[in-house]
Design a protein around this nucleic acid. Structure first.
Length: 517
RNA sequence: GCCGCUAUCUUCUAAUUGGCCAGGAAACCGGGCUUUCAAUCCGGUAAUACGGGUUCGAUCCCCGUUGGCGGCGCCA
């Protein structure tokens, strides 16, 4: 019996939750699910100055929205503020700050062990001294690491010094002249010289744990078997392995995945603007599309499998670390747009309408400018009264055109308020004014007197084509379509009439005609 | 600066342990369908960073160069 697989994702709630983090979480999730293991969410919030409850909430909500469910960790009910300890899993608490505050914290236990065995020590250099040393080394073009003089003091000597000053910190006594190597599941054998690491800090004087140490302690306590994280953590790995060995823990399996890069090829981060999951959500990207898209960023199903649209279940089934790319991938929004469109087209109309409705309402409510309001004539349909059956028909029309849900407002606006007309846009090719007026009047005539049942698109279409005869269809249909929509691009006029009805269509044509006196 | 990772079209990527014309998708361009825009169908442009090896044969293995990225905190 092999040990059950346990993967984890450790976000730090110090800013909006980004797609890079979501991808790391996703890979851990896919790997765990593929092998019937557990995916653990642990919050790295020991940096109390920067960690914020709202950021943690953002992480939890974004992950849930994406469908990346964690088997253990904080829950949305267990908010950062209330600290109600409604967590899932038996290895809690899952917030580092809470673990550190436990009366018999494991951090303290392990720290004391290291100190006692002479594997860690108190460093009494002041922050100023450290900074100066660092600057000197940097200026001399040397590696800015700290190999501390206090490392060789006995514990008793250190305890004595503790009485003389309050400025000290706990460091790991990094063994010299050693090579630390480990196998990365994606990159193979990696090795590092211990001399280049220095005596790194592991805890503050009050035993408050620092990152590298905290990770090692918690991974042990939570029985983590696989560490799947961004390649920016490769340099941390030898430090963590040194700690693991000093504490006699088991070394987990490592896999360092490539970074997601911004358009400028640098690590995607805050400076790249709208990269937060929330922002994509607000713009109307579907969670399934983002899930699918980020899974394919740095990973593919492998040899000869050209599928790109893959469901969550398929992704879990196909996932393997062996097919993870080694080099970083640029987040290409254009391709995301395409994929989102694919998912939109795959939706049922009812579902899509439900998803689009808030975007439409928001658009109609927010885009009423003073200059706009006088044309906001109520054409038999008040904004507050968007009937579902009516809206569904509109959505059906826009479905093949939509890339993001947020586009629905702009695209379907004319169904709810009369458009503003641009004289030149109404004109088909070089049509003269009289010709244009004739065309619009012609359409108005047909609509008002010849169509008996506008709900039959076939009838509308046939009536029009019978009347137009063999003459240039563009002369009639282009001005009609623009009169109906006010836009240079839109669905066809017959489909629009079918939905908006002859009354409103007639009124729109009247307005368009007024442009030409 | 030092250490590490990495290198196939503009972008994401494929190429059974070295072997067809280097394949797919997005984007772009052209065409069909069309009043427009989409959707859809057909077609097209476009890449193994460079230099050495090893080999009958290298995108693949080795070395070097160059480029890109990451890390070097009492942050995580």
């Amino acid at each position: 019996m092999s040990t059950p697989i346990r993967t984890r994702y450790l976000p730090s709630p110090t800013g909006p939750f980004h797609v890079g983090g979501a991808r790391t979480a996703l890979f851990n999730y896919l790997y765990a699910k593929k092998h019937g293991g557990k995916f653990i969410l642990r919050i790295e919030d020991t940096d109390l100055k920067r960690s914020k409850p709202e950021y943690e909430k953002d992480i939890l909500e974004s992950l849930s929205w994406l469908g990346i469910e964690w088997d253990e960790g904080p829950t949305l009910a267990n908010s950062y503020e209330t600290r109600s300890h409604k967590e899932k899993g038996g290895f809690g608490p899952y917030r580092q700050s809470e673990r550190a505050q436990l009366p018999e914290s494991s951090y303290k236990k392990y720290l004391q062990k290291l100190l006692k065995e002479g594997k860690a020590f108190y460093c009494f250099h002041s922050g100023k001294e450290l900074k100066e040393e660092r600057d000197t080394l940097l200026n001399a073009k040397k590696l800015p690491i700290h190999i501390c003089e206090y490392r060789s003091l006995t514990l008793a000597e250190q305890e004595t010094l503790k009485d003389t000053t309050s400025e000290y910190i706990i460091r790991f006594k990094t063994p010299l002249e050693q090579t630390i190597s480990f196998k990365d599941e994606i990159r193979g054998e990696l090795s590092f010289a211990s001399d280049l690491i220095g005596d790194f800090s592991i805890a503050r004087k009050d035993f408050w744990p620092l990152y590298n140490f905290a990770v090692v302690a918690d991974d042990e306590e939570m029985k983590i078997t696989h560490v799947i994280r961004g390649e920016d953590h490769i340099p941390n790995t030898p430090k963590q392995i040194l700690l693991i060995e000093a504490l006699g823990f088991r070394v987990p399996i490592y896999a360092h995945i490539p970074l997601i890069l911004g358009q400028d090829r640098s690590k995607m981060s805050k400076r790249h603007g709208d990269t937060s999951v929330n922002e994509y959500r607000a713009q109307g990207y579907l969670p399934e599309a983002i899930f699918n898209f980020i899974a394919l960023l740095g990973w593919n199903p492998g040899a000869g499998d050209n599928r790109e649209i893959l469901s969550k279940e398929e992704l879990i089934r196909e996932f393997s670390l062996a097919h993870v790319q080694k080099s970083g991938a640029i987040f290409d929004v254009q391709k995301l747009d395409w994929m989102n469109g694919e998912y939109i087209r795959a939706k049922s109309v009812a579902e899509l309408a439900r998803l689009c409705k808030p975007y439409l309402e928001e658009f109609l409510a927010s885009s009423v400018s003073p200059q706009h309001s006088n044309i906001l004539e109520n054409v038999g349909m008040s904004d507050a009264l968007i009937r579902d059956d009516y809206f569904k028909k509109i959505v059906m029309l826009e479905q093949p055109r939509l890339k993001k849900l947020s586009e629905i407002g702009e695209r379907a606006e004319y169904f709810f308020r009369k458009p503003e007309y641009d004289r030149e846009l109404l004109r088909w090719k070089n049509m003269a004014d009289e010709e244009l007026t004739k065309s619009l009047t012609f359409s108005k005539d047909i609509i008002e007197s010849r169509i008996t049942n506008h709900e039959s698109r076939l009838e509308v279409e046939k009536t029009f084509f019978d009347a137009i005869g063999k003459s240039d269809k563009g002369k009639i249909l282009w001005p009609l379509r623009v009169a109906l929509t006010g836009k240079k691009a839109s669905p066809g006029p017959f489909e629009i009439i079918e939905i908006m009805g002859i009354k409103k269509a007639g009124e729109y044509l009247d307005s368009a005609l007024k442009k030409f006196g």
